[in-house]
Write a protein that binds this DNA or RNA. Structure first.
Length: 484
RNA sequence: GGCCCCUUCGUCUAGCCUGGCCUAGGACGUCGGAUUCUCGAUCCGGUAACAGGGGUUCGAAUCCCCUAGGGGCUACCA
C-alpha cells in the first residue's frame, strides 16, 4: 500500500508547540496516513543555546494530545536513529568533509567580525551585502594545513555565481531563483555543529524523506537546499510549502495574539479532534462546504493538491465552534466519563465514576447542546454534586427579590408532598400553587430556576429538579443561600 | 534595499488550472425574528467580498501586464 512515501516534522525545541508547527505536523501526518507512508519526527536542536529538553517534552506531548503518532522518532526509535540532530554531528561532518574534498565547499577562516566588515564593504560598493568568497580561493593544500593546525574556521558552500535554480513546489508550481544572489553560506559552524540549511538536507536524504512539507517561510531557503542536494549527489524530494498562519492583524502569529500553543487550547477545554479539524481547515478544504471531519475522515479526505497558497488568519471563535461540534457528538456516556475526570481534576470529591455514571449521563443528556466543552460542563453541572450552586448575582437580583422568597418557601412546602418525584408531577404542583397564589406560572418558574441552579439559564427546570432530587431541591428553595 | 511568495464577505474558504452554469456558494462571527419556563439551546431570516488599473475576448473572479498592500528570506537561528 505504501508508495514508499516518507514525510517528517522537524521542530526545533525552542518553545511550545505552536499552532503553526502543529498545523505543519498535522499536514505531514495526514499525508503519511493517507498514502500509507511513514511519518517521521526529528528534533532540530542544532542551536545549543536555545534548545531545551522541556521544549522537546512539551512538543511531544502536544503532538500526542492532538492525536498524532509517529512511525520513527524520539521515544519510538527507528532504523535511522538517532532522531536528534545534536546526536548526528559525525554524519554532518563526514558529508561536509566529502563536499570539501570534492571542491563543493571550503573552510573559511574569516572571523565573524571580518565577515561583517566584508558585508559592509560590499554594501558600500553598492552590491548585495554578501560574503565575497575569498577563502574559497585559498589553495586546498594550504587550507587543509591550516585546518589541521587547529585554526578556527567554518565550512562554507561554494555557491554557483550564475544560472538559476528551479524549484517545483506541489502547491505553488515552478519558482526560479538566480544563483548570483546567493552567497557562500555556512554549512558547519565554528563549534562544529551544522547550520539548519545543511542539517535538513543531509538528514532528509539520510532518512529517505520523499516529500518535504513545511511552512512557506522556508521558500527562500529552498534554492540553497536544492543546490546542496545537487552538490551532494542526493535525490531531490518533492516540496510543498504551506502558507503561514497569521494573527488577527495579519502579522505573524505570536503571543501578542493570545493563546497560540496547543497546550493553552487544551487548558481552555478545546477537544483534540476539534483542534485537529480546525487546523486542517486552515489552509486546506475538501469542497468549501464540508467542515466537520473526524480524524478518520480527515485522513480519508486530505490531499496536498487542495492546500491553498494564501496565508490565513487564526480565528479562535471558529476553533471553539468546531470543538463544540465535536463535543456535541460525544455520547452521553463519554461525556459522563469526561466530566467525572474533569470535576475530579478540579478537586471535587465525587463518588467513583461507575457509581454515578448513569446519573451523569442523564444530566448531560438533559443539558444537550448547552454544553460544548469540559469547563462549560463543569460550570453547569458541578452544582449537582455540591450543597448549593454559586449564585449568579445578576440572576439573583432579577428573580429572587421581593416576594420571591416567600413564594418559594410556599412552593417548597407543596413540593414536599410530591411523589413520585418526577418532572411532570413537579410542574403540576408548581402550576397549581401559582394559580392558588393568583400569579403567572412564569413568576414562579423563574425564581425556581435561579434558586435551584444559581443561574437564569438552564434546560427544562422541572427535569433539573427531578435529577437533583427532592431534598436538595427543597433545601435550595428555603435555604436562601442566594442571599449569601 | 535586493530576491521570493501572497491578495474572493470582518474571518476560514468554494469557484481560478480546463473563461460563460457567478445576479460569486458554504461556514464562523454578527444582526433581526420565532419559540410564552429562561438560554449562551433550537428554528427561520438578513448582513457582507472578486485590492486598483490596463489589456486579451462576443464574454473575465477566472488568461496577460502594471501598480498598491501584506508576508517571508537576505545569520556561524531554525
Amino acid at each position: 500500500m505504501s508508495d514508499g512515501i516518507r514525510v517528517r516534522f522537524a521542530p526545533s525545541p525552542t518553545g511550545h508547540l505552536h499552532v503553526g508547527g502543529a498545523r505543519t505536523a498535522l499536514y505531514n501526518w495526514l499525508y503519511a496516513r493517507k498514502t500509507g507512508g511513514a511519518f517521521i519526527l526529528r528534533i532540530e536542536d542544532t542551536d545549543a543555546a536555545r534548545s531545551s529538553e522541556e521544549s522537546v517534552r512539551g512538543i511531544l506531548e502536544g503532538l500526542r494530545w492532538l492525536g498524532l503518532d509517529w512511525d520513527e522518532g524520539p521515544d519510538v526509535g527507528g532504523p535511522h536513529a538517532p532522531y536528534f540532530q545534536s546526536e548526528r554531528r559525525e554524519l554532518y561532518q563526514a558529508e561536509a568533509a566529502r563536499l570539501v574534498a570534492e571542491g563543493g565547499a571550503y573552510p573559511c577562516f574569516c572571523a565573524p567580525e571580518a565577515v561583517e566588515a566584508i558585508r559592509e564593504a560590499e554594501r558600500a560598493a553598492g552590491r548585495d551585502p554578501n560574503y565575497d568568497g575569498r577563502c574559497g580561493r585559498i589553495p586546498p593544500g594550504e587550507a587543509a594545513r591550516r585546518v589541521a593546525a587547529g585554526e578556527p574556521h567554518v565550512i562554507r558552500f561554494r555557491s554557483p555565481d550564475e544560472g538559476e535554480t528551479l524549484l517545483f513546489d506541489v502547491i505553488r508550481g515552478k519558482m526560479a531563483f538566480r544563483n548570483e544572489l546567493l552567497e557562500d553560506f555556512v554549512l558547519v559552524k565554528g563549534d562544529g555543529l551544522p547550520t539548519y540549511n545543511f542539517a535538513v538536507v543531509v538528514d532528509d536524504d539520510a532518512m529517505g524523506i520523499t516529500h518535504v512539507i513545511r511552512g512557506d517561510d522556508h521558500i527562500s531557503n529552498s534554492p540553497r537546499h536544492v543546490l546542496l542536494y545537487q552538490a551532494l549527489g542526493y535525490k531531490l524530494p518533492k516540496f510543498a510549502h504551506l502558507p503561514m498562519i497569521l494573527g488577527a492583524d495579519k502579522t505573524r502569529l505570536s503571543k501578542r495574539h493570545g493563546a497560540t500553543s496547543v497546550q493553552e487550547f487544551e487548558k481552555q477545554g478545546i477537544l483534540p479532534a476539534g483542534m485537529m479539524n480546525y487546523l486542517a481547515l486552515l489552509g486546506w478544504s475538501l469542497d468549501g462546504k464540508t467542515e466537520l471531519f473526524t480524524p478518520r475522515k480527515l485522513v480519508e479526505a486530505f490531499s496536498l493538491k487542495r492546500v491553498g497558497s494564501n496565508p490565513s488568519v487564526f480565528d479562535p471563535d471558529k476553533l471553539a465552534w468546531l470543538s463544540g461540534e465535536h463535543f456535541t457528538r460525544l455520547s452521553d456516556d463519554e461525556k459522563a466519563a469526561g466530566i467525572h475526570a474533569f470535576l475530579t481534576g478540579q478537586g471535587l470529591a465525587l463518588p467513583p465514576l461507575d457509581a454515578i455514571r448513569p446519573r451523569l449521563a442523564a444530566l448531560v443528556g438533559l443539558m444537550g447542546k448547552r454544553i460544548k466543552s469540559w469547563p462549560e460542563a463543569a460550570e453547569r453541572l458541578g452544582h449537582f454534586f455540591r450543597e448549593r450552586p454559586d449564585y449568579d448575582p445578576e440572576a439573583v437580583a432579577e428573580h429572587l427579590g421581593g416576594e420571591a422568597a416567600g413564594r418559594l418557601a410556599d412552593l417548597a412546602g407543596r413540593l414536599a408532598g410530591v411523589a413520585p418525584w418526577e418532572a411532570g408531577a413537579i410542574e403540576a404542583a408548581l402550576r397549581e400553587r401559582a394559580e392558588a397564589m393568583g400569579i403567572e406560572a412564569a413568576a414562579l418558574i423563574h425564581p425556581l430556576r435561579v434558586a435551584v441552579t444559581g443561574r437564569s439559564v438552564s434546560p427544562d427546570i422541572f427535569s433539573v429538579c427531578e435529577l437533583l432530587g427532592s431534598d436538595l431541591t427543597r433545601a435550595r428553595l428555603t435555604g436562601r443561600g442566594w442571599e449569601g
